[in-house]
Amino acid sequence: MRFMVMVRANRESESGAMPSAQRLAEMGKFNEELVKAGVMLAAEGLRASSLGARVRFSGSKRSVIDGPFAETKELIAGFWLWQVRSLDEAIEWVKRCPNPFDGESEIEIRQVFEAEDFG
């Protein structure tokens, strides 16, 4: 089964600053482990929401809202797509992830619908 694993944004990621060389190296090593274990399907880091936009739907109307967005904790700063056998395995992997930021961070794990879920 597949899981989308999302790193929650914070002030640091929203500031547009690049992560430190050390953090990039640590994250790189972790990503390498995921690849070697055959777990990693995709991984992307997201730029600050100031470079993004939202499209809001209301019935048949659409309105565009430019970033940045205020509710930082609701945003994501990056994500992986993993193939593992269980939520527990995904949790085990996340525990091995270096802390994405100084201090407090949060990583959310969500299961992806599979073909058989629609059967």
């Binding site: 089964m1 690849v35 070697k36 274990a37 055959g38 193939q83 056998r85 599979e114 073909a115 058989e116």
Partner: peptide
């Protein structure tokens, strides 16, 4: 049986490394 496909893919990806 998609689980078996997943296992094989994972083994293959490990072997590539």
């Amino acid at each position: 049986r998609p689980d078996l496909c997943g296992e094989a893919l994972r083994l293959g990806r490990v072997l590539v490394g």
